[in-house]
């Protein structure tokens, strides 16, 4: 049991470092295409973290929806707006705006990490058990049926809205 715990921790930290590095590259890289590809690293890292948390269905959905659909959508968006392939120096706001952004980000992180460490000091997970897909579907189709239906309507509305907005007439 202890060996498993150590292995989980090592995996967590390796994936976490990868994700943070990828996320920093997404917001700093000078190449739009590379930003989309670094985003793949972050999102697949998140899927791996979900597996570590024994949430198999969310992990699979993350891979299918984010890596399969949203990244492809981003790549289409990049290509349709004829972004410069290669480096492009005109992607960021001016220096002062970047400093303000970094300040806000750091302040936010300080606040959140203070409250998280204060609130959940060393709460442990205990023995994680696999959260089976059957339980998830039971929950969606009983307790959360109404939000699920609302979400379906939202997706339909977004589909029609996107077509109406992007259509040429």
């Amino acid at each position: 049991m202890l060996a498993l715990l150590v292995a989980q921790n090592i995996a967590f930290y390796i994936i976490a470092v990868m994700m943070v590095f990828g996320a920093i590259r997404v917001v700093t890289t000078k190449n739009v295409m590379h930003a989309a590809l670094w985003l793949v690293l972050v999102l697949s890292g998140a899927a791996a973290q979900f597996i570590l948390l024994a949430a198999e269905f969310v992990a699979i959905t993350q891979v299918l929806v984010y890596l399969g659909a949203i990244i492809v959508l981003f790549l289409f968006g990049i290509m349709l707006t004829r972004a410069k392939t290669g480096t492009d120096d005109d992607l960021d706001n001016k220096k002062s705006a970047k400093f303000i952004g970094a300040g806000i980000g750091l302040a936010l992180f300080g606040l959140m990490s203070y409250s998280l460490i204060d609130g959940f000091k060393d709460t442990e997970f205990g023995d994680l058990t696999v959260q089976r897909t059957a339980e998830v579907s039971d929950s969606i189709f009983s307790t959360y049926l109404l939000p699920f239906e609302v979400l379906s309507v939202l997706l339909l509305a977004a589909l029609i809205g996107a077509i109406v907005i992007a259509r040429r007439d």
């Binding site: 994700m19 943070v20 996320a23 920093i24 997404v26 917001v27 739009v32 930003a35 972050v42 981003f74 968006g77 990049i78 707006t81 972004a83 005109d90 992607l91 960021d92 706001n93 705006a97 970047k98 303000i100 952004g101 970094a102 806000i104 980000g105 750091l106 936010l108 992180f109 959140m112 990490s113 998280l116």
Partner: peptide, 19 residues
């Protein structure tokens, strides 16, 4: 929290819509 703050920085610092 770290990823959230990096995302906030990205929203504030980028001016390309896709990014």
């Amino acid at each position: 929290a770290i990823l959230f703050c990096i995302g906030v920085y990205g929203v504030l610092a980028r001016k390309n819509g896709v990014l």
